[in-house]
């Protein structure tokens, strides 16, 4: 029996005035898979994720979440989706615990689940701290905690570690790896850190200028294309996604 994909994106286009941000993207994400959408700034990652989140409406094409479209099923879909946006600011003068309780109330979730989440994101000792006094990494962990409050079937994380130092980034990765082991959640995360995609995801989609350049598992991606790097460098390190991206576009992933 054929199972319903978690997310199905079919020939989606989106333009803003003169910018054609997404140009005919197709995606098929199976339930339980962790998928990275990798691309430089301005590649169309956020626009694509916002359309999957139901925040933006595609100019053409269809998006189905668990077989349902946003137009007819917004209320049901909001209950099964968790998300974390780039740079969300929460209410400064609420404590971390109060912020979790506030967002939990939107899903009619009680204090017990908030305790669990606090434990999962490692912020138990900070529960009484005001949001304004949290570090960047702690705030990002709070945002991640809020996104998993409702035990979402689909988790969308838009650049969850951008701007964080390597330690804070690794803490986020550890939480996501634990989530992968514990729950049956499908994850889409956008990033321009290839290491993040390599560490966390089963499937990697490389996009640039609104189109998919390549997609597959890490091994498939690195095995499919002949990447020409100087032998002197090849002796010292493995071929990376950045090398692949450079081979495909002539630019590096981290270039703006």
């Amino acid at each position: 029996m054929e199972t319903i994909p978690a997310i199905e994106v079919t020939d989606v286009h989106k333009s803003f005035k003169t910018v054609h941000a997404v140009r005919g993207i197709n995606l098929h994400i199976e339930t339980g898979k962790f998928v990275a959408i990798l691309g430089p700034n301005g590649a169309g990652k956020t626009t694509l994720v916002e359309m999957i989140e139901g925040i933006q409406v595609p100019d053409s094409g269809t998006i189905k979440i668990m077989g349902q479209t946003w137009r007819e099923n917004e209320d049901q879909l909001r209950k099964i989706i968790g998300l974390s946006l780039q740079e969300t600011h929460f209410i400064d003068k609420l404590t971390l615990w109060e912020t979790l309780r506030l967002f939990a109330s939107f899903f009619t979730i009680g204090a017990d689940r908030c305790e669990e989440v606090l434990e999962m994101v490692g912020l138990r000792e900070k529960r009484k701290a005001y949001v304004v006094n949290l570090s960047g990494g702690q705030r990002q962990r709070l945002a991640l905690g809020i996104s998993i409050l409702n035990k979402p079937k689909i988790l969308l994380l838009d650049e969850p570690t951008t701007g964080l130092d390597p330690n804070a980034r690794r803490e986020i990765w550890a939480i996501l790896k634990k989530l992968k082991e514990q729950q049956h959640t499908s994850l889409i995360l956008t990033t321009h850190y290839m290491e993040e995609a390599e560490q966390l995801c089963d499937h990697i989609v490389i996009i640039d200028q609104g189109i998919i350049l390549r997609e597959g598992s890490l091994d498939q991606l690195l095995g499919d294309v002949e990447i020409d790097i100087p032998p002197r460098i090849a002796e010292r390190r493995k071929v990376t996604l950045d090398d692949l991206f450079t081979a495909l576009t002539g630019r590096h992933l981290t270039e703006a």
């Binding site: 209320d75 939107f106 899903f107």
Partner: peptide, 13 residues
């Protein structure tokens, strides 16, 4: 402006 509204309406609020 801080995207908090957007974050809130992405829930069943």
């Amino acid at each position: 402006s801080k995207k908090l509204l957007r974050r809130m309406v992405a829930t069943p609020m």
